[in-house]
Structures are given as C-alpha cells and as structure tokens.
C-alpha cells in the first residue's frame, strides 16, 4: 500500500503533521498551484498501514485519514510485489 495526499482536496491545515506517530507528514514549504502548502511525506514507507494492512487484512492506525478534514489522505494499492527469480549458481 502507498500513502497519497490528494492535492486537489488538501487545504493545508497541517493536522496530519500533529497526529502521525511516525511523523511521516512534514509541513510543506512550497505553495502548489492553488497556493496551498500541502504537507510533504517523509519516508512514507514507514507507515504501519502501508506495511501491514495486507498482512492483517484490515486497516491499522489510519488516524491521519480520519482526522484529515478534507478527505485528502488515502492509501492506494501498489502493484503486487513480484519476487524475482534469482538463479544461484554454484
């Protein structure tokens, strides 16, 4: 799973930056096309839900998406991880 901020909905209130236990969200410092400072993601692969949702089969944590007043935070499915065939030669 991958964390995503919908820039067309985010209004830059920065509530996500205060609730994430991993401090994944950082206040943005560049205004976007609509003049809104959308928060930036700092190493989003640390997110518990990104890592473990599929393993547990339910949503974990998810506080940022719940508290986001603008419904701008969501998780998108990534391509399933394909193990590479590694041939080990002796």
């Amino acid at each position: 799973m991958k964390l995503e901020i919908d820039e067309s909905r985010c209004k830059g209130c920065n509530l996500c930056t205060m609730v994430c236990p991993y401090r994944i969200y950082r206040q943005g410092n560049r205004p976007n096309r609509r003049g809104i400072y959308v928060p930036e993601l700092d190493r989003p692969e640390r997110c518990a839900n990104c890592r473990l949702q599929e393993l547990y089969g339910r949503r974990l944590c998810g506080i940022c998406a719940l508290i986001c007043p603008d419904q701008a935070i969501r998780w998108v499915k990534e391509k399933p991880y394909e193990p590479m065939n590694v041939v080990i030669e002796y």
Binding site: R9, K11, G12, L15, I67, P69, D70, Q71
Partner: peptide, 29 residues
C-alpha cells in the same frame, strides 16, 4: 468510507482545518 462520499462535490466548503470534515469522516467510518 470513500464510497459514501459524493466525489464530484469535493473539496467541500469548510475552511482549512475545520473540525467538521473530521467528524464527517468518523461518522461515515
């Protein structure tokens, strides 16, 4: 929760940081 939203109407009229959006999320959840 996303299925319950009228996506053609978002973003909503609430100001940045308004608590109402959060409450709406929780109720829909």
């Amino acid at each position: 929760r996303e299925d319950w939203l009228r996506n053609d109407r978002l973003p909503h009229i609430y100001c940045a940081g308004c608590g109402n959006g959060t409450i709406m999320n929780c109720v829909l959840e």
